[in-house]
Amino acid sequence: MKKARLATAWLDGCSGCHMSLLDIDEALAVVAPQIDLLYGPLVDAQEFPQDIDVAIVEGAVSSHDDLEKIRLIRRNSRILVALGDCAVTGNVPAMRNSIAVKTILERVYIEGADIDKGVPTEVVPTLLKQALPLHDVVKVDLHVPGCPPSARMILFVLKELLEGRIPDLKSSARFG
């Protein structure tokens, strides 16, 4: 059987969803032979590859960098999965959404700093006005809510996707 070309990505999230993915423990050994993991925090690849079957994305879209990444991911992937509340609702990163970006940056980098006061202008990606759920900016094929979604749920999702089905999570998945 042809292996599924899989990629994962980490936008504005805490990595908890990736941790939960690793928490499927010994089931990793069952899944591993069926996939080629081509990109993500668990892989040493610089560029997001072409022709991905399933892209699993953690985190909200918070910066211009996130926005470019998610658009590229969408272009190059057949199925895009929003994994976890940050990707699905904005969640904790979106708690800043009612505050102006300038106010937050000054609070953190000037008022909150003891040394080197000043908002960084290089290296750190510029923030969007608000942290957004993935589906606000690209088409999402499957939403997996949860903070993080349980390992059991992730395993079920993976198995279904590898069988070529989009799993039905209605009434099994919950925010929070």
């Binding site: 969640n91 904790v92 708690m95 589906h135 939403h143 009434s171 919950r174 925010f175 929070g176």
Partner: peptide
């Protein structure tokens, strides 16, 4: 602003439970 992950009622909330039972997996 419903951020269930950091809510005192997470896991005991009627709104959250209804969203689950009625199959709201995201907000359009």
């Amino acid at each position: 602003n419903h951020i269930c992950a950091v809510c005192v009622s997470n896991g005991h909330c009627e709104l959250q439970a209804l969203a689950q039972s009625l199959g709201v997996t995201h907000v359009r």
